[in-house]
Computed example of a mutant assay.
Amino acid sequence: MKTTSIFSQVLCHLIAMTLTLRQGVHPLPVPTDIPICTASETAQYSLTFTGKWTQAAFPKQYPVYRPPAQWSNLIGVTHSSDYHMWQRNDFASNGVREFAEKGEAWTVMKEVEAAGERIQSVYGILSAPAAVGGTGQMNTQFEVFARHSYLSFIVRIVPSPDWFVGVDSVDLCDGDHWKDNVSLHLYPYDAGTDSGFTFSSPNFETMPQDRITQITASFPSHPANSFYYPRLKHLPPIAKVTLTKIKKTNQIISLLLEPTQSNQLPTGNEIEDTLINTPLDCEASVWSPWGLCKGKCGESGVQHRTRYILMHPANNGAVCPPLEEERKCFPDNCL
């Protein structure tokens, strides 16, 4: 695909530039109020991103075609504590904006490059191919160093105005050793650059630009929003990420076996996969004006008004109300 080719060219360019940047740079001071990683060796991790974006969990306006629900490429970086790819309640950079709105990676890659010494080298860049379908999965591997023990990444929700999921500065180091497993639920974020309310909204630039905010069941508080579920206290997770430290045997790196009933051990940081059925209540339009009064002169008549269904119920949500109503009336202008 053309998009994959462009993405590969961007990554190759960034590799060359970051190798150049490593020469002649000086370390930046490390903040004293942040835990310092003292692990003596580097660590390799496998990253598994799994979509949980199902029609049962997110029935409202679920995109089934042109395009159907899916995930963009994953773009990430391992970094030191003084760098942020993106941050909640902060403004999205131009690179994050272009990626969240269009899935274009060039500018955000250039921003990573411009971070200079804060990015450890080519090993600090990670990517994974796009996942087909809302429950698609993507995998990649990466390396971390004691001075660059943080992981950040971003994945665009497709289709959407400027919505994404990701993690910001997850520390994989715990004092003098690396964490074995980290599992995180992921929830949707709004980049604050497009004002569309639905998955398929046309481009509508936010002026002035807003801050990155987490989308919840009640925020934005607008019935048209694709994630608006007023009956829920919290949205179910739309994706999850699992980070697994790769074991080294005689300096040969080997991936851990996939979890099965025979080899799966409780780690205290595992995420249970349960079937989620989010109730979606029926939504009806406002009533039309009352129609003409039908009846004989001098006698009471009947007039009607109607409304129509905006959203059909799902997963045992509230059923639709009556769509037609009548009342007694007396004909006007009776001759």
Rank of each mutant, 00 (worst) to 15 (best):
A318F: 05
N277R: 14
P237Y: 09
S40V: 13
L323A: 09
Y65L: 11
N203G: 07
A114W: 09
A131E: 00
P237L: 08
E104S: 15
D190Y: 02
L184E: 07
T140V: 12
I36P: 01
P129G: 06
E326I: 11
V167K: 03
W178H: 02
Y45N: 06
L14M: 14
H148F: 11
S72G: 10
P208Q: 02
P266K: 12
I212W: 01
P29H: 01
S46I: 13
Q251W: 02
P259D: 03
K240H: 11
T306Y: 11
G103I: 01
G116W: 04
P31V: 03
S160A: 10
R22N: 11
L28A: 09
A131I: 03
S8R: 14
S46D: 14
E270A: 10
T213Q: 10
E104W: 10
Q137E: 02
P31G: 04
R118T: 05
S183Y: 02
P322M: 04
I309A: 10
D33M: 04
M1W: 08
P322A: 05
V155H: 00
R22S: 10
L235P: 00
P202V: 13
F91N: 05
T4V: 03
S127P: 03
Q209F: 07
T140E: 09
W287T: 13
N316D: 15
P63A: 05
Y83C: 10
P63T: 11
P161E: 01
A115I: 05
E205C: 08
G95S: 14
E143W: 14
N139Y: 06
Q264L: 07
I253C: 04
M109K: 07
F219C: 09
A105E: 01
Y62A: 12
L126V: 08
W71G: 00
R88H: 12
C334E: 11
G103E: 01
S160K: 01
E98P: 02
L172E: 01
S201P: 13
T267R: 07
T20F: 06
S183W: 04
Q214A: 12
L256M: 06
A128Q: 02
D82R: 09
Q303G: 02
A16M: 15
L232S: 05
V158T: 11
W290F: 13
P279V: 08
A39I: 15
P266D: 05
V319W: 05
A130C: 11
E143A: 12
I157K: 00
A239V: 04
P237G: 09
W287R: 12
A146T: 13
E143R: 14
T38G: 08
H304P: 00
S40M: 14
H79R: 04
N333K: 13
H84A: 12
Q87F: 08
N269E: 07
H26S: 13
V319A: 09
K247P: 03
I212F: 03
I246N: 02
Y187R: 06
E104M: 13
L275W: 10
V122F: 07
N277D: 06
T278P: 05
D273M: 12
